[in-house]
Amino acid sequence: MAMQRLLPTLPTSTMADHQEEQDAVLVEEVTKVFTKSRPWLPWQKGEDARTVRAVDQVSLRVKRREIIGILGSNGSGKSTLIRILSTLLIPDSGRVTIFGYDVVRDEAIVRRLINRVSVEASFFKKLSPMENLIYAARLYNLPGHLARERIVSILGRLGIGAARIKQPLEDMSRGMQQKVAIARAFLTAPVLLLLDEPTTGLDPRSKLDVQTFVRELREVHDATILLTTHDLAEAEALCDRVAIIDQGRIVALGSVDELKQEVMRQLGLNVPASMHQVFMHYTASHRITEEDILRYGSWEKAFEALEAMREEEE
């Protein structure tokens, strides 16, 4: 028997104007489909045209100063959603506004409000952290002398000493490079920070450093933060609310406690579910039948098998 899928809590599209002004991010019925076109050349005819519905009718409302986590399996649509918010992708349908500005129509204004840290630190690897960050600072209209002071201070707090600041980034570990990427986002003090798996590859201490910075950015700079992560503990520690995305759709949305209580109720548990159980429940459990559990030996093994099949399909 397939388990029930919890419907997400979706905002209605007709909201009062004053309420809309309070929203940092408003995503309304957004869909993005990628199409791989049919090849032209005769010897490639075996390959078929393919479409992938990366984001499917997603709606989400993020309040000012909120830290919202987006959880989902690989290929679930998290990064596509972040790229739409970053103005790097134009949605096929639906509307996204950031502080009331449309990400397509008011792209130039939106870009002043946001910054993003992606899962892979995107830098000129031959350049030093200082050279990369000065470049970023100037693009965001920060004078050089002010930027230099801030760079030394932020990197110092993230554990990157003065001696490393002028060495090429390619000589640094992946974790250190990721810290520089986070420093770059903090340097420009965005009002909306998009963090796409920012702590992947960081050691536990560095993760804590980053989490402290994320909180500080909200407290000191009034920033709103949208975070995608695979680290459930991180989501639990940082996020006011969590959205779970599966196959391009938001399948659950609420505070960590609300989601735990809901899963406890649905699974008939005596104690609140763990975040692991919440994640498993919403991302795959609705497709796992008793037959699957019998076939693979356990629920976890059935989940792994289904995830592997899905990744292969993608």
């Binding site: 790229r83 970053s86 103005t87 790097l88 130039a108 870009r111 002043r112 946001i114 993003r116 992606s118 892979e120 995107s122 830098f123 000129f124 690897k125 970023a136 693009l139 965001y140 209209n141």
Partner: peptide, 14 residues
């Protein structure tokens, strides 16, 4: 080549 295209294209410049 450097993998920076997304970052540069989302910077607040024309």
């Amino acid at each position: 080549w450097e993998g920076t295209i997304e970052y540069t294209f989302m910077a607040p410049i024309s």
